[in-house]
Amino acid sequence: MSQSISHIVPEIAEPQLRRSVMPWLALARGGVAIGLLLMWEAFARWVPDLIAGPLPTLLRVMDLVRTGEIVSMVWATTLEAIGGLLIGAGLGVVLPFVVQMSPRLSAVIEPFAKTTVGIPKLALSPILIMWFGIGLTSKIVLVALMTFFLVFVATFVGIRSVGPNLIRTVAIFGAGKLEIAREVLWNSSQPFVWAALRAALPWAINAALVGEFLSAENGIGYYIHHSYNLADITGVYAGMVITAALVLLADAVLRLFQRRALAWRPDNADQTLH
């Protein structure tokens, strides 16, 4: 037979259809948004003492923007959430790698890890404030506690999900334990880590808020609690709207990082629901 062997070079898998720009979707979402706003308005008119309407809430938010108050309160909450997330998620990502190095340590720790997941961390917040004071530190610790377990468990599962044949293949190339952890376990666990980070983010912001409810000098939670004490329902609602906006914004930023870190995955594989 001749040496010229024709190759079949199959085409690359067709790119996934982008479904972001679809007119009907935008219309449907707009419709739902208007419906929700109308419901909000209706309830506000029904019990005006307990619910502030959309318009007064919006005006209050704009007020806060105009006076610049919003900057310091969002800044304080963001700092607490990010600081706590960095510590909590950082430990949550690193510790599973330490633990998996020894199957014995893994086995010893597992039941304790499961138990601590069950502890209601928010219930610890008064104690944390006693320990760490009413400043930033106590909130950062609370956020770190809240997010650590989410990320720890997800990373642990991610490491365990790695196929044994992938590890064997790399070992046969001559990779030692450390190289396998660095190359195979680390990269394989990334989709899990990012999904956990995005799930942990709203928890981080909410934990910061709870900390601020209890005692604080600044932050969105402080503003909500303060307004509540003054029977200023509009202020409470403005605080909630700002929080929701902050969560959305932070999630969008995180998704950007996620896309970058997981560029090697197929387009449709990185959708995360929470």
Binding site: G163, T169, E183, Q190, W264
Partner: peptide
């Protein structure tokens, strides 16, 4: 050792 699965590193 070339196994049944390709075992390429997806990243």
């Amino acid at each position: 050792y070339i196994m049944q699965d390709d075992n390429l590193l997806p990243w």
